[in-house]
Simulated scan of single mutants.
Amino acid sequence: MTDALLGAVQQGLEIVDMGRELRVGMPQSPNHPQFWHTLPRRHGDMTRADGGSAANDMITMGTHVGTHIDALAHVSHDGKMYGDVDAAQAGVGGKYVELGVHTIEPMVRRGVLLDIAGLKGVECLDGGTEITVDDLEAAQSAASVTVDEGDVVLIRSGWGSKFPDGAPYVGGPTGVPGVGEAGARWLAERRVHAAGADTIAFERLAPGEGHALLPAHRVLLVESGIYIIEAIDLEEIAAKGWAEFTFVLVPMPIFGATGSPVRPLAVRTR
């Protein structure tokens, strides 16, 4: 008996890759180590007797660089992480054993796109704009979808179109659009599994204030146990008009880490 999922795969799938290419010099939060890639061995550095040669690579990077997922160990508040875990004690030994990224199970879930920029008829929201609960509900209604428990909700501000420009994507003096505390609570009340956005920090960054306050991270990661995915490329999926799809994401199982680079996919049958 053919598995239904395998049957769908054999009939053909359409896949949108929502991960950013990892490139030296790409925009990122200044709070994390930059991405670096080099070739310690190039073709011809050593050649075998039969003429064969191999090249290899070395990379260094922070785990919150490029498209990535925040583990529950990433943020604490008043000394506590999700589940009332003592943050200082949990970090003894240099690994977050209980809430590290290795504890995130592979995701094959219903994905929902809430296209706020599309709702407002703009290429991208202005820096520092707060995406409100009314915006989230209006985008849900416009797309004829309902956010349900266990979903992965992706919020498009259009800010991702600035990624190739470098510094403007980071925001700095302009700020960055995103949900605030109220929007995060709206997601938490619906018990979503994860929430993501096309911006550098998921939530609204006020102009000139950087990462000084991150209430949505507190609400989602610390209070609710909801994962956050940042710097997702949502332009293609928005252009296709996909409001609902199968979402696939597998973090790297880096033991005790606070996050991981990821390559999220949106999948639909042809």
Rank of each mutant, 00 (worst) to 15 (best):
V65F: 07
G66Y: 07
G66F: 05
G66K: 01
T67Y: 03
T67M: 06
T67S: 15
H68M: 09
H68N: 11
I69R: 01
D70W: 08
D70P: 01
D70E: 15
A71P: 10
L72S: 02
A73F: 02
H74W: 07
V75D: 11
V75Y: 12
V75K: 14
D78H: 13
K80N: 06
K80D: 03
M81R: 13
G83M: 08
G83W: 03
D84R: 11
D84E: 15
D86W: 11
A88D: 14
A88K: 14
Q89P: 00
Q89C: 01
Q89M: 10
A90M: 04
G91H: 12
G91W: 13
G94M: 09
G94R: 08
V97F: 04
V101Y: 05
V101M: 01
I104V: 15
E105W: 01
P106V: 00
M107Q: 14
M107W: 13
V108K: 10
V108G: 04
R109A: 13
R110S: 00
G111I: 01
G111L: 02
V112G: 00
V112M: 00
L114P: 06
L114K: 06
A117E: 01
A117D: 02
G118W: 01
G121T: 05
G121N: 06
L125A: 04
L125T: 01
G127H: 09
G127S: 08
G128N: 12
T129S: 15
V133G: 10
V133Y: 02
V133R: 04
D135M: 09
D135K: 02
L136P: 02
L136V: 04
E137I: 09
A138D: 14
A139L: 07
A139N: 08
Q140D: 11
Q140H: 08
Q140I: 02
A142P: 04
A143Y: 10
S144K: 14
S144Q: 14
S144Y: 05
S144V: 11
S144N: 15
V145I: 14
V145Y: 06
V145E: 12
T146A: 14
V147A: 10
E149T: 14
V152R: 00
V152H: 07
V153R: 13
V153I: 03
V153L: 06
L154E: 13
L154G: 08
I155D: 09
R156Y: 00
S157Y: 07
W159P: 05
G160T: 10
S161C: 11
P164L: 12
D165H: 09
G166C: 07
Y169I: 07
V170M: 08
G171M: 02
G171D: 08
G171P: 05
G172E: 14
G172Y: 09
P173F: 11
P173G: 11
T174I: 01
G175H: 08
G175P: 07
G175C: 02
P177N: 08
V179H: 00
G180L: 11
G180W: 09
E181C: 05
E181W: 00
